[in-house]
Amino acid sequence: MSEPQNNVKLDAFSELDKDHRTFVRLTVDENLKNKDLAARVNRKREATMSEWKKSTWYKQAREAYIRTAVKGEYKVKGLKTLLNLLDAKSEMVRLQAATTLLKMAGTLSDNDTPELIQAKVRKANAEAEIAEQKAELFKRSESTGITKIVFSDDLKPDKEDDTDQEGDESDGTDTESR
């Protein structure tokens, strides 16, 4: 004969009997009137349903059920819905569905916004276009034999720092007459 495990704690939903669990499920999953709820959980009075909804056990069990359902069944339904929205007619709906899926997969930061993503795409496209133009110019200059000097706005420090050189420390102006 095995002893019950004392360290196992059931949540408020799991501790309920079958009728009460059914009641909680129906109030979360379906929008039924008290009359219909009473019939489904084997009760004769609608008032009992109102009393149950006001009780502490119901509120705790409802929260426990929602947490469990979101982790399981609702998560699957939500994912299926998002996948279906990827084929929506609206471009914005498709973008939001894709963004949500990427965030769920951990490949997109919460700091990213659709506008920021679009700006990053535009920037990447512009950089690719610039690289193509530079390659085309390089090909043309090689075929014509013309050497071109390309100026860059990349401000990188010189390898040599002029301030540490020995020698004349004047500022370059000649104040003495020769």
Rank of each mutant, 00 (worst) to 15 (best):
K103N: 10
L86F: 13
G172S: 14
E30F: 13
D153C: 08
D161T: 06
P114M: 05
L95S: 11
P157L: 11
A135L: 11
L155S: 12
T27R: 04
M49Y: 02
Q96N: 03
E91A: 10
L86V: 12
I117G: 01
V76S: 00
D161R: 07
L37W: 01
Y65Q: 01
S90T: 08
A119N: 14
T99M: 09
K139Y: 08
E51Q: 10
L155T: 13
G167S: 11
S2I: 08
Y65G: 02
V70K: 12
R62Y: 00
N34P: 02
N7C: 07
K59I: 04
G172F: 13
D158G: 12
E73S: 14
Q5I: 04
G145H: 07
K80S: 05
L37H: 02
D154N: 14
L101V: 01
V76W: 01
S109P: 02
N42A: 03
R140Y: 09
E132A: 15
L102V: 02
I130C: 06
K59N: 05
E115M: 06
D162P: 03
K103T: 09
R178G: 03
N31C: 15
H20E: 09
A119W: 07
Q96D: 03
T113Y: 05
D154Y: 14
M1L: 13
K123D: 11
N42F: 02
L108R: 01
K156I: 15
Q118H: 09
K159H: 15
E176P: 00
A135R: 11
A105E: 09
G72L: 05
K123P: 04
D36F: 06
K139L: 10
Q165H: 10
E160R: 12
A98S: 13
K33Y: 07
N84G: 14
I149L: 09
